[in-house]
């Protein structure tokens, strides 16, 4: 990667980390702020009555953080199963910024796997709204 982009990325990450520390500090210490921040309702669900692929994701991650894997999988199977992918993406993005020997052109993934992520999300979106696959429906 050329160096100006890397420097820019490092600065952005630093500012982001500082902002996150301040936000988390106020979120933890200020009483009443917790009640103001509510997960907002899904517009797609409100408009059409159908579930989107991310519906139930917040509840699933909440249950996962409390160690209830079965409930987490019930609320949003895709969000829980895609967590390793999120970790991989975060590690790769960090390597692009911090590892000076790692160039973007070194990143090689077979196109089939990248397209299958898109296909998986669309298939999950469709089948979780079908009656036969109601176990994917958080209800």
């Amino acid at each position: 990667m050329n160096s100006p982009l890397r420097i820019w990325a490092e600065r952005t990450l630093l500012i982001f980390a500082l902002v996150m520390i301040v936000v988390v500090y106020f979120y933890v210490t200020t009483p009443g702020l917790r009640d103001l921040v509510r997960p907002h309702q899904c517009l797609f669900l409100q408009a059409t009555g159908l579930l989107c692929p991310a519906c139930g994701g917040t509840r699933a991650l909440g249950h996962l953080l409390d160690g209830r894997l079965q409930l987490a999988l019930k609320y949003n199977t895709l969000a829980v199963l895609s967590l390793p992918l999120v970790v991989y993406g975060t590690v790769t993005a960090s390597r692009l910024v911090f590892d000076r020997n790692f160039e973007p052109s070194d990143l090689k993934i077979a196109p089939f796997w990248l397209w299958s992520i898109l296909a998986l999300i669309i298939i999950f979106w469709i089948i979780r709204n079908l009656p036969y696959f109601s176990f994917l429906n958080p209800g």
Binding site: C42, L43, P53, A54
Partner: peptide, 18 residues
């Protein structure tokens, strides 16, 4: 390029719900 395209497609698909 494919990562960019797939992320863009998913982003545009999901703008209404998340």
């Amino acid at each position: 390029g494919i990562i960019s395209l797939v992320a863009g497609i998913i982003g545009v698909l999901l703008f209404l719900c998340c």
